[in-house]
Design a protein around this nucleic acid. Sequence first.
DNA 1: TTGTACGCGTTATCAC
DNA 2: GTGATAACGCGTACAA
Lengths: 341, 341
Amino acid sequence: MNKNKITFADIAKYTNFSKTTISRYFNNPDSLTLENQEIIAKALVDLDYRENKLAKVFANGKSEFVGIIVPNLYLHYYAEMLNQILNTYEKFGYKFLVFVSNNNEETERKYIRELLAYKIEGMIILSHTISSEELASYDIPIVVIEREDKYVNSVNTDNYLGAVQGTTLLFKNKCDVLLHINSMVSKDVPAYGRIQGFQDICRKHNIKYELIIKELEHSQQEINQCMLEVYEYVKKKYPNQKKGLFLSNDTYANSMLNIIFREYGTLPDEYRIIGFDDSPIAIQAIMPISTVAQQIDKLAYEAMEILVIQMNERKKRCPKPQTELIHKNIIPILIRRKTTD
Amino acid sequence: MNKNKITFADIAKYTNFSKTTISRYFNNPDSLTLENQEIIAKALVDLDYRENKLAKVFANGKSEFVGIIVPNLYLHYYAEMLNQILNTYEKFGYKFLVFVSNNNEETERKYIRELLAYKIEGMIILSHTISSEELASYDIPIVVIEREDKYVNSVNTDNYLGAVQGTTLLFKNKCDVLLHINSMVSKDVPAYGRIQGFQDICRKHNIKYELIIKELEHSQQEINQCMLEVYEYVKKKYPNQKKGLFLSNDTYANSMLNIIFREYGTLPDEYRIIGFDDSPIAIQAIMPISTVAQQIDKLAYEAMEILVIQMNERKKRCPKPQTELIHKNIIPILIRRKTTD
DNA sequence: TTGTACGCGTTATCAC
DNA sequence: GTGATAACGCGTACAA
């Protein structure tokens, strides 16, 4: 069980071939006679050879590393996205170096530097702190997911369509007034489409609506407190009217549902609720929550696919610089459960 | 914005030093005169030098890579554990290559081979499929977390103590009968301590108890169905008795709570509930669920600390093989919320 | 304090 | 089909 350090040189010596031939055995086996292939194959077992990919990378420059920066793994959305990205290994063979940035800009720059030092071939960025302009300046294939993407490739859920689907469902539920509860979201991030889609549909159907924008809350307690305030406000402002609540995520939706359910022992007809994301909480809630599901598997896969194309281009003799940015939209899926009709 | 390929040789030429001196500037700057340090520092900026850690690794063998194999990231427990492990980068400087095994044994072996090929210095294993005996045979520093650990180092929550705390709380809640609902769990994994702790406390206090072992269910629907059966069974078997339910995780606890809450519009005094893990669901539930919290941050940190010690030992001139396995226990924390008195 | 020469394990470029 | 030899970028004895 000793540190076996068998190299091509050892195999070459053992088989009386040259290192070159051994290398060829791995990279272009057909160029050897079958007989010799078998000799080498046997030697590999005899010597218990273990490949050294670092040496390979060093020699030919292809690290097969992709760097990932994710803001956190507390939110199920990021965890699942990371999961799906990591699972593309089976398809594309790229290994992943993962960093959690905790939304700290300087930390993130440090991580990117570290990733670059390890000769990653590309990056997938989920965090929001560094501008796409700066990202683009790193001159390495990059795909970002669900964030500001002016200067880099991106894959996003069609948030606008998702909002349209959700809002339309509430409208069809014959609500008297539609409320969209969201946090402050910048116009240049895809999630802004949720607000636009909501407004457009409300206007299109000429239905009463209100946008409730709250400061982003972090702890569950703060969220609950915040939702309670929204609930009291809405209850007072629209008595005896059927209220359609479109929450910007399932955590908010669940919090709101709990408040109402605890008061009435059920979700009264006067309230319809729809969330966003299809997080586990949506199905674990006291009542299964209707929601707009992001197709996280597709988002991840498409991101890697775009990245792989760019990375492959770089490996050619005369790589053409990317002329046009790719922004791919993935459609969301409306999931009707118990909090809507 | 061209592919800058500045190496020590370039810097050496630019500054009229030798490559060695440049190397020393990075690894032992004090051995240069301040003056010369500044000259080199300036050259680095002028030439826009970017370090190449891969070459460094190749030259000295210290990859600073740690491999992680996690069964999935769907369960919050694994996601949070990964999060905490990744966060130790700030403390220890090790980079992480992450694979998700989806509980497939062969896949896992393939991943381990790949990790080894990249000259990782150590591994943290969260998945359960490969025996610790086989893991030990890979002859590389390894720490496993919350799994069978006979032949490798490990960090575990003191599950026994957790069960003792939870069960004792239910006992103090003056329950007439205590029920522990768990899935089939092997005796050699730490989580088995939950069953033992429960039984021991029940016997110690001479209180009526029952162990309900169900097949492991995966989808939320299956879990709900399973919990419904348990509920019907318990309700029928122990009418008019105060029932203390100790569920093996918060997902089960939440499912059970929902069933009861939907029936009564509240959690009646007849039922007390306690879960395990302190997952987000425990606090997002219709009533905040009492639970036994694993200190995931501590588990992760201790795992890395043990690993780092082993990895450092390997870097010495004459590394002493580890003579004694380390099995570290982390105490859990009882969190009292609304589902217990 | 600084420089020379070689090693790390593989691939690439020529030859034969 | 096969083999010598030179990269790849950095660390490190050893020498000066």
